[in-house]
Design a protein around this nucleic acid. Structure first.
Lengths: 372, 372
DNA sequence: GGGGGATCTGACAACGTTGTCCAGACCGGT
DNA sequence: ACCGGTCTGGACAACGTTGTCAGATCCCCC
């Protein structure tokens, strides 16, 4: 983040030391130390200011001789147009912002990359920031991007109330949400079919004979987590299978917690029967479960596993991991395209785009139930 | 990318349609449709322009009563400071740029994330772009960022000539290179110990009895690739082992190529003896080799493998993969800290920071040689 | 009661660019 | 020689913010 125009704009973090900018000239001289401007170029080339502007922007109406002179002046001075001034004048930045949970998450990095590619194709630059799942930080970032006057925003929500964006949207910032719906405002949205994907994944386990299936989800409160849980319950229900309370656990970023929950379900605490299969709510949980199930003391009773989200090397593990795959790049691409559709002037109702998931059977989901 | 001030600024890609900006008011009315400005806030609050500025920036010298009035006007109008204008006036953007190969690469995404965290700690925003290993695109991106007047740049080079940055650096853009050295200019640099890491990795294989070791590297021409190859040759040399030409192959982004090279080395084409171990030059190659070695027809003759770069789940494969690990987040952090040191005014000689690698023995590198 | 500070406030000019508008140069045709 | 048109170039104002500086107000104390 950078700019703090939080509505209670006290305690401003200092933007940046102004130090390096003033280095070079000792303040007094008429010769300014900073960068050359169009004015400097114009003086050097012996032409007017606007002529330089025309050359820099490739506008028509400059004789080739003049153009050459200007180009020479530009290169010899090392001039580079100041986009801030340009933005100020034009009112458009040719840049969009992306706020997501964690840029380093293997699920989000392809999404970001896809957004970047679409932006690039539209001649725009992408600025992105990680919210670290902190609602406050999401807001801080999104608003900082608005202060930079990005033309549009793509947001993977970390908060459940986005009314803070209302003035921005009203002011013309195109906004698209991905992966999770926005809170308390209407906006474009791109979602995976979380419910249906989870339902299908659990149904797959049921089809392979499992009747006691554990569900370890995503961080509770997140939309995707709830949808996937609903998919699990629906699949069980449709098969006429009961669900014991102890078979359902919220996921957690704390893998120890996940391990403990898994152990409880596997060992059949609370007098309930142990589960013979797991459905996991996201890839981090899946990986943790793979580790749990790969432990030597668990080897004698193979447990089936289907995970939501694909991940690299899933096919190389033993057994290879069956997953319900989303396509994060596809989500990002769809969202960005929706965004640029808005920027191109579309102003119909906010729409929700749903992207299908794919069940990829690799082995771990086809293990038959082993009773103790 | 967005702005084209490429020195031959013809064929400008259109920045962005100006459409949405002008929607709302039909050009004539005195009431402008755009965003409220400080002037509007001032009018609403019945105070002067500068007073609003003071409130927004948390400057001292505003009575609490006035401040309250201004705050009310701000929220009721949905005002947000225009950072472009601010930048124009102040000359500093509180943002830095990062140009790397591919944001979605699991090696670079933590690096990016680490840079972001450091930037955030310094109150700056990070703008990043992917060069896709295309030198031209690297330049395009870096210069677009300079046009935005980022205060500094972190670059993972895709090109081998960075003289295009000279005017920018002269104009005060702090610049730090990571992972690979800059071409034909002097600048700060953060590198992993590629040579020593590779040497140690290969020596590890030798220590486990291997005498014929294949090397499949990184994209040729890249600094890291050459250093790692040099490490390989040095290790072999130090052990008095000859290196057959056919044991060394450049890496490639094309995994088929890597598969073919590996097959050739394993089957001992060209009359040379087959290799009993591989050292791989980056994680993509490592993963490809894991796939090759896991093929059923290769199972009967286990081949050892040590890879440069760690990757997720390396410990869960069978056998778990021994790697020479770099710490990408650490590289990013070091680079960003170096950058902010410069921005804080340090202007000593460009320095090169070297970060150690770690050999993580997990199993695949400890397999003894199996002759055919 | 008046001087002197401290506190609060606003007018104004910049920052570097682009859109508008106008002036001059040059062309061809009469 | 004159006219209309096209091409080229430049003066100027705006974009929204912040730094400078000076004016206004208030309070305190001599």
């Amino acid at each position: 983040m950078a700019a703090d125009v939080s509505d209670t704009a006290d305690s401003a973090r200092p933007p940046l030391p102004t130090g390096p900018r003033s280095a070079g000239a000792s303040r007094g001289g008429p010769r300014h130390a900073g960068r050359p401007t169009m004015k400097d170029v114009a003086a050097r080339a012996g032409v007017g200011l606007k002529t330089v502007s025309r050359v820099v922007n490739g506008e028509a109406g400059v004789s080739s001789d003049t153009e050459r002179r200007v180009q020479e002046a530009i290169t010899s001075l090392g001039f580079r147009r100041n986009d801030s001034a340009r933005v100020l004048r034009k009112g458009t930045t040719a840049s969009i912002g992306l706020v997501l949970e964690d840029l380093a998450d293997p699920f989000y990095s392809p999404l970001s990359r896809a957004v970047e590619e679409v932006a690039r194709a539209h001649g725009a630059l992408l600025i992105n920031g990680s919210s670290a799942e902190d609602p406050e930080r999401e807001q801080e970032l999104a608003l900082a991007l608005c202060a930079r006057r990005v033309d549009g925003l793509v947001i993977v929500p970390a908060s459940d109330d986005h009314r803070y964006l209302e003035p921005e949207i009203a002011a013309g910032v195109a906004t698209v949400f991905v992966d999770r719906p926005p809170g308390r405002i209407a906006a474009d949205l791109v979602l995976s079919e979380n419910f249906e994907g989870a339902r299908a994944g659990v149904a797959h386990l049921i089809a392979h004979g499992h009747r006691r299936i554990g569900f370890i989800g995503d961080r509770p409160g997140i939309h995707t987590a709830e949808e996937r849980l609903r998919g699990y319950r629906t699949a069980m229900d449709q098969a006429g299978l009961p669900v014991a309370d102890s078979w359902v656990a919220p996921g957690s970023t704390d893998s120890e917690r996940v391990r403990a929950d898994a152990a409880r379900m596997l060992d059949g605490a609370d007098g309930t029967e142990p589960v013979t299969a797991f459905f996991s709510g996201n890839n981090r949980v899946t990986v943790t479960l793979v580790r749990v199930l790969a432990a030597p003391e668990r080897r004698d009773r193979p447990v089936a596993l289907v995970g939501f989200d694909d991940f690299e090397l899933a096919d190389l593990l033993s057994p290879p991991v069956t997953v319900v795959a989303q396509d994060p790049a596809d989500l990002g691409r769809s969202a960005a395209e929706l965004l640029f559709r808005r920027l191109d002037g579309a102003d119909d109702e906010p729409r929700t785009v749903s992207r299908p998931t794919t069940l990829i059977a690799r082995g771990s989901g086809e293990i038959p139930p082993h009773e103790r």
